[in-house]
Write a protein that binds this DNA or RNA. Structure first.
Length: 570
RNA sequence: CGGGCUGUAGCGCAGGGGCUAGCGCGCUCGGUUCGGGACCGAGAGGUCGGCGGUUCAAAUCCGCCCAGCCCGACCA
């Protein structure tokens, strides 16, 4: 490929609208270009890297007996209503009405469509297990795309779905995908930590994430540097120091308008760990009052798990007003009577730390006063006691008591153990060997390709530019000449004609230093340099990116050396 | 969805009521160069994000809107 003909030039200046190093380099190098918020175009160089990534993943998926398919981007809304996710994923879904008046959505993920496909094609348990994968566009109506390619509205995902005869079979398959994913990220030279994660709108039973530590990430992982425990902050568990003491009699004190935890600590002269806060969650049908210690936060994921109620959201001011509640004065000891008379289910969930800590401060539903020396069990009850708080820095590891740390990460991929959630919802059943109907056990697996590209750039660059891992560079070799001698030019042209697309041929009339700079910026790993000086001795040179020592090769051997360096392929 | 920042040439920026809106890079043409972003000369390129207002006069002041980015909330 002649560089002069390649679409997408390198630029010297950093684009103003990009803040992360990797994304800036991808734009400066001519790999990607933004179209609009959360929407990116891939230029030829970028698409070539994407092709190498998909090929890498495809090889791994095939090694797991995966079969590649391609499902529609557009799904009937009805399918999503049947799975129960139309409401759960409402914020992500973008839809339209088609020519015949049916409501359609752009798929933010493909579990529904994949189950529908399997339902129509798999007719016997003997066909299981089946593992299907695709590279397909997702569209999610992200509230806030950010970090260039790290978080977009539209993106291509490598997603896989497996269907099994039994939970055991699924359990045995998951680690194989897990290992394949680890190999993929290793090939991308991205350091990953694996962690237990939230299931969120994906539902199902369990989930694991592959995370790249990075300050530009917008997920947070909780880790123990002692025993290696790692989990997404939403689901991580840890232990807290709990004050002890004999229960004292319940009293009330005026709080003089103090509402926030900070105000209360100064008003009452105690620490946040002596306080409690009551957060009201709702899913439209029922209210959940979640009580955690004043220095803690409610984990929405844990709350949904313990209640087995997806779709819970923190109630906003208007919704609270609807139930006669005021966010500044809510407590489980004296809920307003009219709330109890309303035709709405109200459940109270108390964090286990609160339940086992004596003499806490609890807000009253009557504004202006707080209860002091509240003791769970004696002064109030709840429907459930469970760990529902997020692990915050300072908590200790449940395994080894070492202090837990929080780290920002980019979520590169995940593995979901879905169980029979979708099989049941979408009525995918088969007969087993004894003729009994059963719901196949399913797993889902995904890697965001654009995010992977951005993460590789983030993890593999230096001051000069990108530095692609072996096999992922858009071109393995950049061919360039020095000077304008006819002999050099004719050799370059001959090599280009012969080896064509194997390398990028910088045929511009630019100074050699410009060519070097651009090669560094684009991250081409090797240069093949032809100059009058070396050509006199019948030699050309090979210079690796980041190295200053050249390898001299005779012109007669160039083709063989190129074949060796590129592993016989481009 | 809340808060903040920014919109002036393809990119990065300066200008901040008054004559023809500039600079660097890039681009075009001609010439000299070529071992880590060379140089000379000549040129092209702008609804100053949009709409409205104030004014004799608006890129500049005011209002509204739009777009992009950043922080947060939310979310695989």
């Amino acid at each position: 490929m002649r560089y002069s003909r390649l679409l997408g030039k390198t630029t010297r200046d950093y684009p103003r609208s990009v803040r992360t190093a990797g994304n800036a380099l991808l734009q400066r190098g001519g790999f990607i270009r933004p179209l609009s918020q959360g929407l990116y175009s891939f230029l030829p160089l970028g698409l070539r890297v994407v092709s190498r990534l998909t090929e890498l993943i495809r090889r791994e998926m095939r090694a797991l007996d995966g079969q590649e398919v391609l499902l529609p981007l557009v799904n009937p809304l009805e399918l999503w209503q049947r799975s129960g996710r139309a409401a759960l994923a409402a914020d992500d879904l973008v839809g339209f009405r088609d020519a015949s008046g049916r409501d359609m959505v752009l798929a933010p993920t493909h579990e529904e469509a994949m189950v529908a496909l399997v339902k129509s094609v798999v007719t016997s348990y003997r066909q299981l297990p089946v593992f299907l994968f695709q590279f397909q566009t997702k569209y999610r109506n992200e509230a806030r795309p950010r970090g260039g390619l790290l978080r977009t509205r539209e993106f291509v995902m490598s997603d896989g779905y497996s269907f099994h005869r039994s939970a055991t079979e699924l359990n045995n398959f998951l680690p194989r995908v897990f290992a394949a994913y680890e190999r993929i990220f290793a090939a991308c030279r991205i350091p990953v930590i694996t962690a237990e994660a939230a299931v969120g709108m994906m539902r199902g039973e369990r989930s694991f994430e592959f995370l790249m530590p990075s300050e530009v990430g917008d997920d947070r992982v909780i880790r123990c540097e002692c025993c290696g425990y790692a989990a997404n902050a939403e689901v991580a568990v840890g232990t807290l120091n709990r004050p002890t003491g004999e229960p004292r009699p319940l009293t009330t004190v005026p709080s003089h308008g103090a509402v926030t935890m900070g105000e209360l600590t100064s008003e009452l002269g105690c620490g946040k760990e002596a306080l409690t806060k009551t957060m009201v969650y709702s899913n439209g049908d029922e209210l959940v009052l979640a009580v955690v210690r004043g220095d803690q936060e409610v984990s929405g994921e844990k709350l949904e798990r313990v209640l087995a109620t997806p779709g819970l959201r923190l109630a906003d001011r208007d919704e609270l007003a609807l139930y006669g509640l005021d966010a500044r004065a809510i407590g489980p000891l004296d809920l307003p009577l009219d709330l109890l008379e309303l035709d709405v289910r109200v459940r109270i969930v108390v964090d286990d730390v609160v339940a086992s800590t004596p003499n806490l401060v609890v807000s009253s539903s009557e504004s202006g006063i707080h209860f002091v020396d509240v003791n769970f069990g004696r002064d109030f009850e709840s429907d459930l006691v469970h760990d529902i708080s997020r692990v915050l820095p300072g908590a200790r590891c449940a395994n080894c008591a070492h202090e837990l740390v929080q780290q920002r990460v980019v979520e590169l991929g995940n593995v979901f153990k879905l169980g029979d959630y979708y099989s049941r919802k979408l009525r995918l059943t088969l007969s087993d060997s004894r003729g009994r109907r059963f719901y196949p056990q399913t797993g889902a697996y995904g890697i965001g390709i654009g995010r992977l590209l951005a993460s590789i750039a983030e993890s593999n660059h230096d001051r000069r530019g990108l530095d692609w891992p072996p096999g992922l560079a858009p071109y393995p070799i950049l061919l360039m000449g020095i000077g304008h001698s006819a002999k050099v030019a004719s050799l370059l042209e001959a090599l280009h004609d012969e080896l064509g697309d194997t390398f990028l041929y910088d045929d511009r009339r630019e100074s050699i230093s410009t060519k070097f700079r651009d090669a560094d910026l684009m991250g081409i790993p090797m240069r093949l340099i032809v100059s009058p000086r070396t050509l006199e001795e019948g030699k050309a040179e090979i210079l690796e990116r980041g190295s200053t020592s050249v390898r001299s090769v005779s012109v007669a051997n160039v083709r063989a050396v190129v074949a060796e360096l590129t592993g016989g392929s481009s």
